[in-house]
Amino acid sequence: LLGRRRALLDHLPYDCSITDLENITQSIVKSHLETCQYSSEDMKRFTWVQYSPEETRAFQNKSAEWMWQQCAHHITNAIQYVVEFAKRIAGFMDLCQNDQIILLKAGCLEVLLIRMCRALNSNNNTIFFHGKFASPQFFKALGCDDLVSAVFELGMGLCRLQLSDEEMALFSAAVLLSPDRPWLTEGQKVHKLQEKVYLALQHSLQKNGASEEKLDKMVSKLPIMKSICNLHVDKLEFFRLVHPETAYSFPPLYREVFGS
């Protein structure tokens, strides 16, 4: 597929010029920046605010239910920004609403995982959570060490790629517009949109002198992202069995997106 995309960039489809790709890039970057919860400048300001060992211990000693509630709340908040991002991608709102919902349900956590690298401090393996930077051990009360470490590992891998806002924006849009999500009614339309976004990403990488392998490295993260999303759903299902009432009190949007 990637080889085909490279060839496509040399022989663009008849309905897509370099100017089109640059317009797509510009509009998606704008949407991304308008819907990011924190600007890069905000994150730089927060970088040195770490949880103390005492604060970390206090969070570790919270109940699983309390910690799940906090995380569900933060994820729900972040999902609302992803919905806004999707709405501003040219062509997304032209899809039927059934497909818009399928794409968001299937792709919003993957987009959050990409966006997460802005909230990571790769120097000390911490993530911005609840106002300060937290280590993986901070989330012990969730009882999901494997999920947490997989998320951190992916985040560090994405940080190593040093994605620019432009690359992050286009990659997020491409992931959201995955035509292989089950039950899509207009898969071909989604496929065409994704193709253009990937071409725009390829063009942007070439223009900015990125290495040939950067796109391959970005795309190679997709299976890990998918497995993290599946693991999250497994953990949620197990949590729901053990604490049905707490799970029922999670934000309705969270339950809607991650319900079966």
Binding site: T35, Y81, V83, Q97, I101, L104, P252, L253, E256
Partner: peptide, 20 residues
């Protein structure tokens, strides 16, 4: 539609998440 009423609402309304 009932199953995804919040997503429907978010997709339909024009407010930004900051205002929600």
């Amino acid at each position: 539609k009932e199953k995804h009423k919040i997503l429907h609402r978010l997709l339909q309304n024009s407010t930004s998440p900051v205002e929600l």
